[in-house]
Design a binder for these strands. Structure first.
Length: 121
DNA sequence: CATCTGACGACCG
DNA sequence: GCGGTCGCCAGAT
C-alpha cells in the first residue's frame, strides 16, 4: 500500500498546526479508519520532509512512542504549539485537511453496513 | 495460507 | 472521566 496520498496531506499541514489520524482517514477515505492513517505514519519515510510530528491522536493526544514521542513534543514546541502534558489544544491548533488530495473529489458515498450492536452490549 | 501485531477511534458500563 | 472491548486492514513471521 502506498501511503503517498497520506504523506501529501501531512505535508500540507501548516506550521504551528496539527491534525488527527481520524481526520486523515476521513479526508482520504481510508477504510481502516484512523488505524490505517496511523499505519501510514508508522511507515513514514524519513528524508521526505514529512512533518509527521504534526499528526496527533484524538483530542490532540500524543500517541507516538519513544523516542519519536519525545521528539514530537520538542518539534511541536519548536513550532509554537503549546503542549499540555501529552496533549495539544486542538481548538487552537487543529488543522483540517482541505480535501483536495485525491483525483476523484466526488467522494462517492459507499454503502454503509449496519453495525452489529449485539456484540459488546 | 494462517497467525499475530499495531503512530487509533468509537462505544458501553 | 476511565477502563475493557471490538472493528478496521496492511505488514511481518
Amino acid at each position: 500500500m502506498s501511503w503517498d496520498p497520506v504523506y501529501k496531506v501531512v505535508k500540507q499541514i501548516p506550521r504551528g498546526r496539527v491534525t488527527t489520524y481520524g481526520a486523515l482517514a476521513k479526508a482520504l477515505r481510508l477504510r481502516g479508519g484512523a488505524r490505517t492513517a496511523g499505519r501510514a505514519m508508522a511507515a513514514t519515510p524519513s528524508g521526505k520532509g514529512i512533518p509527521w510530528h504534526r499528526v496527533v491522536g484524538d483530542g490532540g493526544r500524543l500517541l507516538i512512542p519513544e523516542p519519536y514521542g519525545s521528539l514530537q513534543r520538542k518539534m511541536l514546541q519548536s513550532e509554537g504549539v503549546e503542549l499540555v502534558e501529552f496533549r495539544v489544544d486542538l481548538k487552537c491548533y487543529l488543522w483540517s485537511p482541505v480535501g483536495s488530495k485525491k483525483k476523484g473529489a466526488k467522494a462517492k458515498q459507499k454503502a454503509r453496513r449496519p453495525r452489529n450492536t449485539s456484540k459488546r452490549g
